[in-house]
Nucleic acid binder design. Structure first.
Lengths: 175, 175
DNA sequence: AATTTATGTCAGCCATGTTGACATATTTTT
DNA sequence: AAAAATATGTCAACATGGCTGACATAAATT
């Protein structure tokens, strides 16, 4: 029924009484939106989008990963990846090396240019995080990290731990 | 230069030494991805996407908001909004009411059906949050909320505070 | 030798963002 | 009252980045 018969407007606001954690739902929405807006400005100068950012990020984070591994992290199809990967290779940000054991594989590495761009993209995000944590104790930081990690599907947490410097329970003594 | 001359692969992984907070950057990425995946499954049954979700969410969160206000929260163009809004109206999830003072305005309200769907979409997200906060103290929760809020651009924090039940510094005693 | 696997590629579709132009009704200003 | 500004709607065209399906190639495995 798409008629307007029972389309009476509800005038009461949805709010926490329904046992729903609206506060964190919308904080997460706004926080993530602004978090991604920093790199977007830089990417636009190169004609790149967020898809390029994600590829560049993980290639820098785990140099030498294969196309299959990257697809697994990004959870997109190879056809989607192919488009942006081609552009990153053509622009000299990423380079491919034939797999040493299995020569069907293509190991993906950043070039110097790709490393520079990855750092430039991460910098404002890191700055935003540092500012947001400014008044936090290291205990609070741990609580935040634990929360974010617990928000990830358990099966996928392994992907995070597999990245260099992310051994489970490891201490991150930044700033 | 798009040639492969200076395309030497960099084999060292990008890691925290550069003073960059990679840990939280990637936790945020993975956490948000899985956070949004819950509602996506439900939306698919209706032929809706995330764009519909966002509209439905804010219309429920602030019933009676005008088109202009909604555009301001979502930061998209009216043409983008028009498409999804039309579908939500046609499917009887949202209804428009002529503004009482200014009759040019269209106040947007959820219908009963729209409220039901909004709740169904929020439920799994809230469940995920509750599970992630399971072992957290209320102090830690405060730390997490403060962090997320500090991640939002200062100019935009007003939008959050303007939503019902989000007076600055208010206590959220959920669960 | 046959099959499976890793990757690449072509073609087309869909969702959701964009810009620009223009129409309409209503309110505000002059 | 007339003119200008405002809120909204709509048309058309385009870009990005997802998707599916089909097929090609080279290399590894059986």
């Amino acid at each position: 029924m798409a008629d307007s018969a029972n389309a009476k407007p509800i005038r009461t606001a949805l709010s926490g009484e329904d046992g729903i954690d609206l506060a964190i739902i919308e904080l997460f929405f706004f926080a993530y939106r602004d978090f991604t807006s920093d790199p977007d400005l830089i990417l636009a100068k190169y004609g790149f989008g967020r898809a390029h950012h994600r590829v560049l990020y993980f290639v820098n984070r785990k140099p030498g990963l294969t196309v299959a591994e990257l697809l697994d992290v990004l959870k997109i199809t190879k056809q989607s990846l192919a488009r942006v990967l081609k552009q990153l290779i053509d622009s000299g940000h990423v380079t491919q090396v034939q797999g040493p054991r299995d020569r069907r594989q293509r190991e993906l590495y950043p070039t110097a240019r790709g490393r520079t761009l990855a750092l430039a993209l991460a910098r404002p995000q890191s700055r935003r995080i540092r500012a947001a944590l400014e008044s936090s104790t290291s205990t609070e930081r741990e609580g935040i990290e634990r929360f974010l990690k617990a928000m990830v599907n358990p099966e996928l947490r392994a992907q995070i731990d597999n990245l260099p410097g992310n051994m489970p329970g490891e201490d991150h003594g930044k700033q």
